[in-house]
Design a protein around this nucleic acid. Structure first.
Length: 289
DNA sequence: GACGCGTGGGG
DNA sequence: TCCCCAAGCGT
């Protein structure tokens, strides 16, 4: 229990970023959209797209009526576009099965596409003020250092990670405390070059008291991108986002020289539902033809 | 539990 | 220049 709630809450009140999904007027739907967009994606890239989305689709039912193609085009280059399809499907489920109201219950949220252990609890806490452990990569790092005295978090383990954070939560303002833990990891207790001089819990930090040991867990796998299917899929989708009309395969063939990889990627995009083939054999974003 | 899934900014 | 990394999820 080395993360004093009062210190953290005061620090958060003084220095937290003014993000639109944290404002009191933001709806639960707005919170959900932000959480999906923020998965593996920096705040600076999310913010403008989030504003566009909430203005265009202010409710789940509004988005449910849009086509998949429109949603994918509005997603733009945020990355991992399958998130956009899952959010669209979640919007349809909320509209049709939950009276257009984002569920409050973690177990119900977990049944929705694209909502996992983190996002379900983030919505419960940040949209509905519930006391439940919200564990993302920032929180895992803060707990690893400040509580366990390690240089960084080891491999994720949902059960253990939830338990670690649950015991920290104060009875009052638990949701704000959760936001503060995340903010601390995002702004101060960062992966590279943590700003310990600015840390509100410096005096209680187990990592400091432990002599700042280096991370000694298993090496983290570094994800390659150049030359992977992920890059090729991104190039193919970028062509389709940029046009209103279905395109011939010869047009898609221009984006990558390796025909085998190209065809494999186009096929996987079809399987994922990110691309559709028209009766004429042309290719387009789904749901418009 | 490991792997695949986009994209771009900063050190 | 590279290389690391950024509020995960589904299989």
């Amino acid at each position: 229990m080395s993360l004093d709630a009062e210190l953290l809450l005061d620090w958060f009140a003084d220095t937290a970023r003014d993000l639109p999904w944290r404002r009191p007027e933001c709806t639960a739907w707005g919170v959900l959209v932000s959480e999906i967009m923020l998965q593996q994606t920096p705040v600076a890239r999310v913010e403008p797209i989030w504003h566009e989305w909430l203005a265009r689709w202010p409710t789940p039912s509004a988005m449910a009526e849009a086509s998949q193609g429109d949603v994918l085009r509005a997603w733009g280059k945020l990355g991992y576009p399958r998130r956009a399809l899952r959010l669209h499907a979640a919007a349809q489920a909320i509209a049709e099965q939950h009276d257009d109201v984002v569920p409050q219950d973690v177990d119900t949220l977990l049944t929705l596409p694209g909502i996992g252990a983190y996002t379900a609890r983030a919505v419960a806490a940040f949209a509905y003020g519930q006391k439940c452990p919200v564990v993302d990569t920032n929180v895992r790092r803060v707990v690893a250092r400040a509580v366990h005295g390690a240089g960084d978090a080891g491999p994720p383990s949902t059960t253990k990670d939830l338990r670690d954070v649950e015991v920290l939560l104060p009875d009052d303002d638990a949701a704000v405390y959760s936001a503060a833990l995340m903010e601390l990891g995002a702004l101060v207790c960062t992966a590279r070059a943590p700003k310990c001089a600015d840390c509100p819990v410096f005096d209680a930090c187990a990592w400091q008291l432990n002599g700042r040991p280096a991370y000694d867990g298993p090496a983290k796998a570094v994800q390659k991108f150049a030359g992977t299917d992920r890059q090729v899929r991104g190039l193919l989708l970028d062509v389709l986002r940029g046009t209103d009309e279905p395109v011939a395969k010869t047009r898609l063939d221009l984006v990558w020289s390796d025909a085998g990889q190209r065809d494999r990627c186009l096929h996987s995009l079809l399987v994922d539902g990110l691309v559709e083939q028209t009766r004429e054999g042309l290719f387009a974003l789904p749901g418009e033809h």
